[in-house]
Amino acid sequence: MTGHQFLFWVFAAVTCGGAIAVVLTQNVVRMAFWLIVSLGASAGLFFLLNADFVGTAQLLVYVGGTLVLLVFGVMLTASGPFSKMQTRPGELFLAGIVAFLLLGLLGSSVCSVDWDRVVASTNAGQPITTHHALNQGYNRPEEGNTGHPLGMAFLGMRPDRDLAPGTKTLSTGYLLPFEIASVHLLVVLIGAAYLARAKRRIHPNES
């Protein structure tokens, strides 16, 4: 067993175990805890998949940002300490059956595809090339140093494709989606502040 395999099994077990614990736990704060465990371990999977920047963004934005927000929401909305909203056992049983069926469907479809052949037959793009324009820093892009190529892709340039041998046309990057995402975030910021603003609750005896 190589180190990669060992780490994969550790991270995969923690990710899946955390996700299942989220489903089975009834206490919403503990759910948040297991969600943190699951998402943190999946950031580890991203590091194994040579996506350092994505893994770090997952840790910073998802775990450090979004989940703090969720926990904050849990604390603001909990009616009593450690509030529980029970799922009825019948519902849970039904959901379990559906879950196993869905998982079986997805699992069998994943396993039934010969991925090596599919991968070999796709030529939709090029691998992240070893062109020296992208080889900045101490590690190679294939070893997780994708920050620079990702930044270029977000600026609308795709040197990993365009500089590959035999390329005739230029590819478009992700400048427009990037701008749309930034405007979207601004809209969300204003919208969330508007929705969650402190409204004075009118008491019947006052009005």
Partner: peptide, 24 residues
């Protein structure tokens, strides 16, 4: 696969959108 960088770009978009969705 040979899709290369595109998958990582999309997953970054997903992370950002998930943060926005959680806020709203």
């Amino acid at each position: 696969t040979k899709l290369g960088l595109d998958g990582q770009v999309i997953s970054l978009f997903v992370i950002v959108m998930a943060a926005a969705e959680a806020a709203v």
